[in-house]
Every structure is written in C-alpha cells, then in structure tokens.
Design a binder for these strands. Structure first.
Length: 610
DNA sequence: CTAGGGTTAG
C-alpha cells in the first residue's frame, strides 16, 4: 500500500537527526548510499518519492551533508515546492554558495525576484562569497524587474570580482541592459566578449528586436549565419521572426519561416505563435490562420495572438469567432485576450458586443478590467461618436499612472475627431498636469481648436510650444515594396524621391474610394505645419477612414496629407490595403515606428494623428 | 560534481 509521507514530519526529523554526529555514518557504504540518493533526487518526478528519498537521507545520517541537502533543495524547487526548499535551507548548518544560489534561482524562476535579491543581502552577511552562478541569477532577477539601478551595482561587483569575462554572466548582462532599453550598453558587453555562443548572439538579437531596431537584429542574424559558428536554434529564430514582424518584413519573415521548417522547429508552439503574429503584422492574416490551425492544442497565447492579429486587420468577426472558440474549448482568456476582443469590437463597430464583453470580464472570466480595457472601450465609443459616454467612463474609473495617460490620450484624440473642444481641453489639462504626453497634448489640442475654427487659440498654443521649447517628435511610417523601403516623416516630404508618384497614387486612391461609394463627407482634416506655424491648411478628404489610414507628408505646396499612417487602426484597413495593392500591383506593408516591447503598451487610438 | 544566460500575444 502506497502511503503518503508527512513532509513536515520528515523535515522535523531532519532537524532532530542532525543532533547525531554525522561522522558516525561516514563509511564507504554511506558514500554509495549518498550516490544512490542523489541519483534518485535528480530524476524524482513527484513529491511522494521526493519525501521518501528525503527520509532515507535522514535515516542514513545525511541531513548534515551540504551536498545532499543541496540536491534535496533543488529537487523540491523542481517540484515547485519552494516552501519546503526554503525550510530545508533554513535548517542547514553549513550553507555553501550552491545552497544560496539554488534558492535564489528558485525564487527567480517562481516569479519572486525581489525575494532573491533579499536573499543575496543575507548571503553577504553570511560570509559565503558569490560566484558567477550567483551573479547570473541576480542579473536575471534585475532583468525581470527591469531594475537598472540594482543591475548596474551588480555589474560593478561582477567586474570587481573578476566575473566580467564569464560567458553566461555576459549573456545575462546583455539581456538585462536590453530589457531596460539600454541597447548601446548591451552592445558594449557583446563586443567585449572574447567567446560567444548561440545564447549570447540570441541575447543581442533579442535586444535589438525588442527595442524597435529590427534591422540590426536581422543584420546580426545574417552575421551569425555568415560566421557559421553554430546553427540557429528555436530561441534565436523566435527573436528573428519577431524582428521581421516589427519591421513588417514579410519577405524576411517567409525566409525565416523556411529556416524554421528546415531545422524542424515548425511543431514548436512558441515559434508558431511568433509566426502567427508576424504574418498578421505583415498584413497576411490568411497565413496567420494557416499557421495557427496547425497548432495542436493552442494555449491562451496562440489564441490571443490570432485574436489580436485578426482584430487589428479589421476582421472583427473572425476575431470574435476565435474568442468564442477558445472559451468553448475551456481555455481561460486573460487580460491580453480581452484587449484583443475589445479591439475587434472597436474596429468593427460592434459597440454593444464590446460593452457586453467588458461587463462579462470579471463576472464570467474573473479578469478585472483595467486601464487598457477602459481605453479600448473609450476608443470604441469615440469612433462611433458616443464621446459623452466615453468621457463619463474615463472620469468614473480609477487607473494607475501609465494607464491614465493612455486613457486620456485616447479621449483627447476622440474629442478632437468629433470637435468636442470642451472635452479636449480637459483631457489635455489632465495629461499636461500629470506631465505625460505633454507635446502630443499641445499639438492635438491645437488641432482641435483649428478644426473648430478657433485659429487664435490654435495659434497661441503653437506659439507657446515654441516659446517653452516643447517639441513633438514627428511620427514616421514606412512601406516596403519588394526589396526597397520607403520612409516618411510626418510633415516632411523632402526626402521622398517618389514625391510625384506618391501624389498621383493618392489622387488615384481618392478616385477609387469615391467609386467604392465613399461620399466626400465634411470630415475636414486640419493640419498645422510645425515649421511654418502660421500656415494652416484644411483639407477635406473623401473619407475619414482614408484620413486615418494615411500618414503625414507635406506636399511641395505645403498641403499636408496623411499617407499610410495607422493603417491597422482603420476599420476597413484590409479594404484599403487591397485598393493600394491593386494600384501598385504588388504586396507591401506598413509599420509604425517606436514600438517598444517592454515599456510601451500603447494602444492604437482613434485619430492618433501623430 | 548539486546552482546560472536566450523565445510567443498587449
């Protein structure tokens, strides 16, 4: 009969048996027992056999033995019993660097990096010296916390203690600097290394990919392949695909997909999820669906990736179908899934459905709506002109600092779009007072005044910006046609070689939009030239959707037109996509700049004109 | 001969 051992009893026994002198048991047979027990502990798959081995260790008088106890600690950590591991650790009479590092690593991998840092503090008092393993663990903790202040202090300590040349320590340092958006410092570490392996290359590639410099990521990947040091593994391929996604490089993405298949990683769920995301961001939701359907049992992340991809592309119905499908398959949606589902409602005009989902979040799925969900709802209401409701919602919810700017920034854009100067004024005030998105607030408020015909206030705001030196970074977008990339900066066409080509494309687009039944509405789009502040031009576009889909460029005449900006937020963006594809007779894609992986969870908002 | 580094959705 199998009997479950009482673990607490075993641990108490372990304490009690330490009263005996371990030297009594030090015989050759004891060494054999020790080897046997350690072997057991390393392969142990369940708590029952772990406790059994633990009790055997106690009976054999090994509870005093640091080496055996370290194995026990690691066994409990592997079985996710950090409490037992810590208890054992507390009872040890002789802790060595492995004991300390094991426990710290346990806390880091179980999502408690702060506890690991606290343990290091205690370790310093204990006179046990940290080694390269300890530092790799600690840097990992800083990386998760994105705490560069503590990270730098560890880095200094690493150099002082002479671990600055260790391969693993360096890889973790690259990762930490990367996660803190300090790309140059990550590169300094990478360049200083005398030996590199796949992991260090991957860390550097990932740093580029996650910091919106996908081109460098791809360049480094090419370099890695050229050097033929090693074959890329699934970690590296993941980062490379993710870089292609952020660049919208469909061609490179497809090539990397080919590498994935050739190297036999196509059954890897993480890779598949990255591919789903990449194809969606490159405007090929059809391919996303194909890759997604090959995943055997998609978890919440692949589902969410697919839901978000479809939502952004304007396929709201598909997105919501997938949402229902995952709920039917009893896969629990999380906060990100709801961002996707609400995005779908917002971009497909399914307002009632969106409100219904918001209400169901906590009640049915136990996910508390937060700022990002309220922002989706405010965006959704704003798009259909229910600006007053959006305003009341924004006023009624409590959100944290970052979410606050997101929410009121969305409200500001929505009120500009619908000419609600009163709300725009309040939203800008809130943003400026909280010292967030200040330049954007000034510009959008100024544009709102201009749209309402209040040129005086519009002009005054511009003057004040100039006087106080507040500057808005111009937005940019780029399109890729075959091998060439065309970059546009907001309010600047000077670097555009295809100026006349672009203009004729625009004119043709307008014609096509008219043919499609877009009546030239009264949607006036107001543009202020930042360089020549007095110049105000109003341009009426045939469709608000067209206006949203286009990024800003300045024509030689000073008229500002939006070209391909925020394509993904346009309700009919796939329609627009098709139209433009028809005209240029090629596939192309558009990406936004400034997409930071770790610290920018900014949502696309309606009328996010910059 | 116990402990350490790199990947996915917003």
């Amino acid at each position: 009969m199998k009997q479950r051992l009482n673990l607490n009893l075993v641990i108490s026994m372990s304490c009690y048996s330490s009263l005996y002198k371990p030297s009594l048991f030090h015989t050759t047979t004891n060494a054999d027992i020790k080897a046997y027990l350690v072997g057991k502990l390393q392969t142990c798959k369940d708590l029952t056999s772990a406790t059994l081995t633990h009790s055997k260790a106690i009976i054999s008088g090994l509870s005093y033995d640091t080496f055996t106890t370290n194995h026990l600690i690691n066994c409990y950590l592997r079985l996710l019993r950090i409490d037992h591991a810590h208890k054992l650790f507390d009872q040890m009479s002789q802790r060595n660097v492995v004991s300390w590092t094991s426990l710290m690593a346990g806390y880091v991998s179980h999502g408690q990096p702060i506890v690991a840092l606290r343990l290091f503090h205690q370790m310093q008092a204990s006179l046990v010296l940290p080694n390269e393993f300890t530092f790799a663990t600690l840097i990992n903790a800083c990386s998760i916390l994105a705490n560069i202040d503590i990270g730098r202090r560890f880095h200094a300590l690493i150099e002082i203690m002479g671990f600055g040349c260790n391969l693993v320590v360096c890889s973790s340092l690259i990762d930490m600097y990367g996660k803190c958006n300090l790309v140059d410092e990550a590169r300094l570490i990478f360049d200083s290394m005398c030996i590199r392996n796949v992991v260090s290359w991957t860390s550097m590639i990932t740093t580029y990919a996650q910091n919106a410099i996908g081109h460098y990521a791809l360049q480094l990947f090419r370099e890695f392949n050229h050097l033929r040091l090693d074959k890329p593994n699934h970690f590296m391929l993941c980062s490379v695909i993710s870089a292609c996604a952020s660049l919208g490089k469909l061609g490179s993405g497809k090539i990397t997909h080919g590498v994935v298949i050739r190297r036999g990683h196509d059954a890897n769920d993480v890779i598949a999820t990255t591919l789903v995301d990449m194809y969606a961001k490159c405007g090929c939701v059809h391919y996303s669906t194909k890759v997604f359907r090959r995943i055997q049992n998609p978890s919440v992340i692949p589902y969410t990736s697919m839901i978000v991809g479809a939502a952004k592309y304007g396929l709201g119905t598909l997105s919501l179908q997938l949402f229902e499908e995952m709920v039917d398959r009893r896969i629990k949606p999380n906060d990100v899934t709801f961002v996707g589902a609400l995005h779908a409602c917002s971009h497909s005009g399914l307002v009632d459905k969106g409100l219904e989902i918001l209400d169901s979040m906590n009640v049915k799925y136990g996910v508390m709506p937060d700022a990002k969900h309220y922002t989706c709802i405010a965006d959704m209401l704003g798009r259909v002109g229910r600006i007053e409701e959006a305003y009341q919602l924004a006023k009624s919810v409590q959100v944290e600092r970052d979410g606050y700017a997101l929410l009121w920034g969305t409200l500001l854009s929505a009120s500009r779009l619908h000419g609600r100067v009163d709300i725009a004024v309040e939203a800008s005030k809130r943003l400026i007072e909280s010292n967030q998105q200040v330049a954007g607030a000034y510009v959008t408020l100024s544009n709102t005044y201009a749209l309402a015909g209040d040129w005086e206030n519009a002009h005054n705001l511009r003057s004040e910006m100039k006087r106080t030196g507040i500057q808005k970074e111009p937005g940019s977008s780029w399109i890729e046609i075959k091998e060439s990339t065309y970059l546009f900066h907001a309010g600047d066409i000077s670097n555009c070689n295809q100026r006349s080509e672009m203009l004729s494309l625009l004119r043709e687009l307008e014609e096509r939009m008219k043919e499609k039944g877009y009546v030239g509405g009264t949607t006036g789009v107001v543009f202020l030239d930042v360089e020549e502040e007095a110049k105000v031009e109003i341009m009426s576009l045939h469709s608000e959707k067209l206006a949203l889909a286009f990024g800003l460029i300045n024509t030689p005449k000073g008229v500002t037109i939006r070209i391909m900006k925020n394509l993904r937020m346009c309700r009919d963006c796939h329609e627009t996509f098709k139209l433009i594809s028809d005209i240029v007779e090629r596939d192309f894609i558009v990406r936004d700049v400034n997409r930071f992986h770790h610290f920018n969870n900014g949502l696309c908002t309606c009328g996010d004109f910059w």
